[in-house]
Each structure stands twice: as structure tokens, then as C-alpha cells.
Simulated scan of single mutants.
Amino acid sequence: MATPTCYSTKAFSTSSAKSPLAPATIQRREPGASDVQIEILYCGVCHSDLHFARDEWHFTQYPAVPGHEIVGRVTKVGSGVTKFKVGDSVGVGCLVDSCRTCADCQNGLEQFCAGMVMTYGGMEKQLNAPTLGGYAQSIVVTEEFVLRMPANLDLAAAAPLLCAGITTYSPMKHWKVGAGQKVGIVGLGGLGHMGVKFARAFGAHVVLFTTSPNKVEDAKRLGAHEVVVSKDEKQMAAHAGSFDFILDAVSAEHDINAYMNLLKRDGNLVLVGAPEKPLPVAAFPLLFRRRSLSGSLIGGLPETQEMLDFCGQHNITSDVEMIRMDQINEAYERMLKSDVKYRFVIDMASLK
């Protein structure tokens, strides 16, 4: 296969784990027959971006360009593209390709494909080079991995739906969260605040767990029916054995057994946060009430489009704070202190 010709575009990248993100010029492939070229208007800032930029997962290749909550406008389409046209509002999430043939891909679960290609930190097949993410002016993606954005949603506030949104929507759909259920959300950050919104929209009774008493009112504004300060043993004990489903969105070390004890018989706790160290899990709370502990990873392309359409129908977006591209290093430091409500989004016009 011939190597495609390329064009240059402005971006922000980092050259090492200890270097700040800084202006750069990167190469993108010219669109092939099945490709869509997108002018990036907004890009959400995910905690994964920080892990990747600083090589905390130990697979980063430099120079590195993070960003996988991408929304923008189609500027060019290949001759074989049928789903999109110039001017369409579109999104790109955590994946830009997969093998297309395995059982996972055939079932619309591309996130579990052994050959999945991540939006950054993967290998771009066409260029045989590392993929570069959305902290850039434009990107080229094969049409099957481009998503249609609902016309009624604010694009900047919708950007985090491409990761934080699908990460919380997918496990709730899989475990059939709905009316008549009691659902807990652990943590009120970028993921947790989306979890509250989705659980409420699915018709569940929503309880938010937080270590911070100052988040109580905000959690209720976002849709929680009740808020429990998890450091308060009496508040926790009052909910013992009462939850159908708990979504744990905390990436810091914490006592997961305290939440396992809140589940009903056959209740399930799903991890979507990714603590750095393994969490000790006691056997008896699982055994005696047939509870389960599971995990979930983003979502496939069909489910991500379904989630976006659901958000369009229910007018769900993320609560965001807009930043300029040159504020990204400061935003990373603030993110480490949980000093954001609840997702930073980069206005890519600031890169021009």
C-alpha cells in the first residue's frame, strides 16, 4: 500500500514526560477514498490525556499529541464516503480504527478489539506512524469512526460526551439501569457528573457519593435525588443493602468494600475509574449476597452514536469550562487538584 501524501496542521504536543505541551506542526494524511477530514472546533480534556502526556501508562511515544473528545466540522470527504458531507457537525472519540473483522468488531464492540487503534498512542495503519490526537486544528479519520453530532447540542459542551459520556452511558445500558432502580454514583468529577445525568435520564433514583460536603448542592443541581458524604459512617450505614447498581468513577485509592456492602442481592458495582494500584476486595460481601464487581471501557461505535442521539433527545451535555490552547498546562495542574467543574474544553480557534 502506497504511503499517502500529507499536509501540515498546527497542534500542541509534548516531547517528553517532563516537558510541557507546546506549539508544534504535525502531519496528517490527505483524505483517502473512505476518509473524512475534520476542522477541530473543540476538544475536551480527559484525565487520560494527562496520563498519556506524562507517560504514566508507560507506552507513550514522543512527540505526543493528546485529545480524544473531538468535535468539529467536515471540510473534505473521500470519493467513497457516503455518511457525511462537507459542513456536517461531527465527533471523534477514543478510537479511530479497528480490525473490522473480529467478533467484537462484528458486534459493534470495537473498544474490545485486539487491533483497535486509539486516537492517540495507537499506530496509524496508513502512515505506519503513531496516532496524534485532537489538540490540533484538523484530523483525518475513516468514516466508520466518525460520529454525527445532534444539531440541538452546544458543540463545546458536547465534546466530553465522546469519552466521559460514553464511559458512563455504556455500563448503565449494559446492566439495564432504569425506572424503579436505586443507582449510586461514586465521585463527582468529569465521569461522575455525567453518570448522575444519565442515571436520572434513565429514570432511576440517583444517589451521589462524595467525600466533599461542599459538593452536595451541585450534585442535586445535576440531578441527584440524594447525596451521601461517604466519610460519614451513619450516612453510609443508612443505605446498606439497598442499591441495584453502583457506578464507581473514582481513580484515586479508596475503599471499594464500603460500596459493595451497599448493594442488594444480585446488585452490581461497575468500575469506570482506574486507580493506579489494585483495590483490595473482600470475599464475603460478594459471596453472601451474590453481588458482582465488573468493569467497563468506553463503548463501541454504534453505542456511542446511540448515546449522542440520546443526549440530543434529552438535551444532555457536560458542564464545561472553556480554555485557550495555551492554557493547557495550567489546566493539567488544576485537574490534578480537581479544580474544574466538570470538564475542561479547549476552544481550538485559539490555536490559530
Results as ranks from 00 to 15, higher is better:
residue 259 Y to S: 02
residue 332 Y to N: 07
residue 70 I to V: 15
residue 203 G to T: 11
residue 190 G to T: 05
residue 42 Y to A: 04
residue 282 A to Q: 15
residue 93 G to T: 07
residue 222 L to R: 00
residue 261 N to E: 10
residue 282 A to F: 10
residue 161 L to T: 10
residue 350 S to R: 13
residue 222 L to I: 02
residue 11 A to Y: 08
residue 279 L to S: 08
residue 19 S to M: 03
residue 281 V to M: 06
residue 171 P to M: 10
residue 290 R to M: 14
residue 31 P to R: 11
residue 44 G to C: 12
residue 119 T to V: 11
residue 275 P to C: 06
residue 160 P to M: 11
residue 165 G to P: 03
residue 90 V to P: 01
residue 142 T to G: 13
residue 165 G to S: 10
residue 60 T to R: 06
residue 303 E to L: 12
residue 213 P to M: 08
residue 71 V to E: 01
residue 64 A to S: 15
residue 41 L to F: 11
residue 86 V to N: 11
residue 246 I to C: 03
residue 152 N to R: 12
residue 257 N to Y: 11
residue 182 K to F: 03
residue 73 R to C: 07
residue 311 C to A: 06
residue 83 K to F: 10
residue 110 E to M: 12
residue 75 T to C: 07
residue 20 P to Q: 11
residue 147 L to I: 09
residue 166 I to P: 00
residue 30 E to Y: 05
residue 6 C to P: 00
residue 105 C to K: 15
residue 38 I to H: 07
residue 95 L to F: 15
residue 107 N to K: 11
residue 337 K to D: 08
residue 114 A to V: 13
residue 247 L to D: 02
residue 23 P to Q: 15
residue 170 S to L: 09
residue 302 P to S: 07
residue 183 V to K: 08
residue 231 K to R: 14
residue 181 Q to Y: 04
residue 197 K to C: 03
residue 321 E to P: 00
residue 351 L to V: 06
residue 13 S to D: 10
residue 195 G to T: 04
residue 276 E to R: 14
residue 279 L to Q: 11
residue 86 V to A: 09
residue 259 Y to M: 02
residue 222 L to P: 00
residue 229 V to L: 05
residue 241 G to D: 09
residue 205 H to T: 14
residue 3 T to Q: 12
residue 109 L to S: 09
residue 275 P to S: 08
residue 284 F to P: 00
residue 158 A to Y: 08
residue 285 P to C: 09
residue 159 A to S: 15
residue 148 R to D: 02
residue 173 K to A: 08
residue 253 E to Y: 14
residue 135 Y to G: 02
residue 186 V to R: 04
residue 147 L to D: 05
residue 143 E to D: 05
residue 343 R to A: 02
residue 285 P to I: 05
residue 86 V to Y: 05
residue 10 K to D: 10
residue 43 C to G: 00
residue 321 E to S: 13
residue 189 G to V: 07
residue 6 C to W: 09
residue 254 H to Q: 05
residue 108 G to Q: 08
residue 166 I to Q: 06
residue 144 E to K: 15
residue 301 L to E: 13
residue 252 A to N: 12
residue 37 Q to E: 15
residue 330 E to C: 01
residue 260 M to K: 06
residue 34 S to N: 11
residue 28 R to Y: 03
